[in-house]
Design a protein around this nucleic acid. Structure first.
Length: 108
DNA sequence: CCCCTGACGTTGG
DNA sequence: GCCAACGCCAGGG
């Protein structure tokens, strides 16, 4: 992958996540070989507001909705996921392992 | 320039 | 599985 603005690279990957599936900050960082790491993927998402990016499909490594605070209401992220068939309970994605979509293994 | 704080993750105990 | 310590880079104070 090129050394273009990596924020854009992150957004491109997030846009590839199918509805009904979720991915993680770390998986994206690994797929793009970002030396910066998962933390900067989170930073990129921070700047993704208003952009055409399905940010609700990105959760942390154990399936927790760590970014829900950055959505309009406390339940907005969960509702967006539920509308796509991804159930959330106690801020955690139900059956996380099954709905996880890892670009490194899915995009070949 | 130093210190702290993150939409994070790995490692070691 | 839980917790603490780091590593990571960008911004803010």
């Amino acid at each position: 992958m090129e050394h273009r603005d990596y924020f854009e690279d992150v957004y491109d990957v997030v846009r590839l996540v199918p509805a009904g599936r979720v991915t993680t900050y770390g998986a994206i960082a690994q797929y793009l070989s970002l030396r910066a790491g998962a933390r900067m993927v989170g930073w990129a998402m921070n700047a993704a507001h208003g952009r055409d990016v399905p940010a609700h499909r990105v959760v942390n490594r154990i399936g927790v909705l760590s970014g829900k605070h950055f959505f309009g209401s406390p339940t907005a992220m969960q509702e967006l996921l539920a509308a796509e068939g991804v159930l959330v309970q106690d801020d955690r994605v139900v059956e996380f392992r099954k709905v996880l979509w890892d670009p490194t293994t899915e995009l070949q």
